[in-house]
């Protein structure tokens, strides 16, 4: 689903990613661990197209999966306006997209979701309004009919309920006055509503207490543990991995992947630390 080849990227003039290669298939959950400053968050930002993060070398291709019968949203339309779209953006096709050529909102429409380490406040804009506009912008881009207010609220209620979030919170302005844990939970509700093919979750576990950690972990499994989806989990600690079992664990150090293993690698890291491994 995602092919990262020899990726080099700068923040300003400073090289952060230095030849990162990584491959994710549909149905897989990958964890990326590593010390502070290794480039973990940079990877998330580069993949989702944040301005200021400049790719100097390498490539990233994204291949949205074929949908199995039912799936994310209504069936694609088949009129000419849809046929004219970028083939990679049509649901049910399997043509690789040059991800780095797309704008951030186009990457979102193609099926990529970034869970933020520090979710941003937008005063005066309710979560409901924000997500409905965002989702319908994505759907429009893909040539799908927009969801009506009623349809959207149904989805939003389900997702908020599944993550134990009060519907009233969805009516409040985006992240304004939310605690750290509520913000992270809100990111998961957003992920559930948007229902992406690929989620990059940047330290979704930080700032969570034990109960919230379990809720968020359950949410990731419920929403993303599917044959047509994949997750890239960026984390410092092994504890989230108690709830979300990764298929692969990668160590990111000094801008590249230095080691890859199974779920056991995370336990090893927790015991021995990164220094031991990077050496």
């Amino acid at each position: 689903m995602l092919q990262i080849n020899n990726l080099h990227a700068n923040v300003g003039d400073k090289p952060i990613l230095k030849g990162l290669t990584l491959s994710l298939n549909a149905g897989e959950i990958h964890a990326i661990m590593g010390p502070n400053g290794a480039g973990k968050s940079t990877l998330g930002y580069v993949l989702s197209g944040r301005p200021g993060y400049k790719v100097t070398e390498g490539s990233v291709t994204f291949t949205p999966p074929v949908l199995p019968g039912e799936g994310r949203g209504p069936e694609p339309q088949t009129d000419d306006s849809v046929a004219a779209l970028d083939p990679g953006l049509r649901r049910g096709t399997q043509e690789p997209i040059d991800l780095l050529a797309l704008e951030p909102h186009e990457r979102a429409a193609a099926g990529l979701f970034l869970g933020f380490q520090y979710p941003v406040e937008i005063p005066g804009v309710s979560n409901v309004q924000f997500l409905r506009e965002a989702l319908n912008a994505q759907r429009k881009y893909r040539g799908e009919a927009p969801l009506t207010g009623g349809e959207f609220l149904k989805v939003a209620r389900e997702q908020a309920g599944a993550l134990g979030m009060d519907m009233e919170m969805l009516k409040r302005p985006v992240n304004v006055g939310f605690s750290g844990g509520e913000k992270k939970r809100n990111e998961m509700v957003q992920m559930g509503i948007i229902d992406p093919a690929l989620a990059i979750l940047d330290e979704t576990d930080s700032g969570l207490d034990i109960d919230a950690l379990r809720t968020v972990g359950d949410g990731i499994n419920r929403i993303m543990r599917k044959p047509d989806k994949a997750v890239l989990l960026i984390t410092h600690y092994q504890r989230l991995l108690d709830y979300v079992k990764p298929d692969f664990v990668h160590v990111l150090a000094d801008g590249r992947i230095t080691r890859t293993g199974g779920a056991d690698l995370a336990l090893e890291l927790e015991r021995d630390g990164y220094k031991e491994l990077a050496a």
């Binding site: 909102h105 979102a108 429409a109 937008i122 965002a134 957003q190």
Partner: peptide
Amino acid sequence: QMFYAMARGLNAEEAVALIVNG
């Protein structure tokens, strides 16, 4: 704010309009 809104699927102008309306 701009990047957050764009990462959720809004283009730059939609993002500005949303933030300004808020």
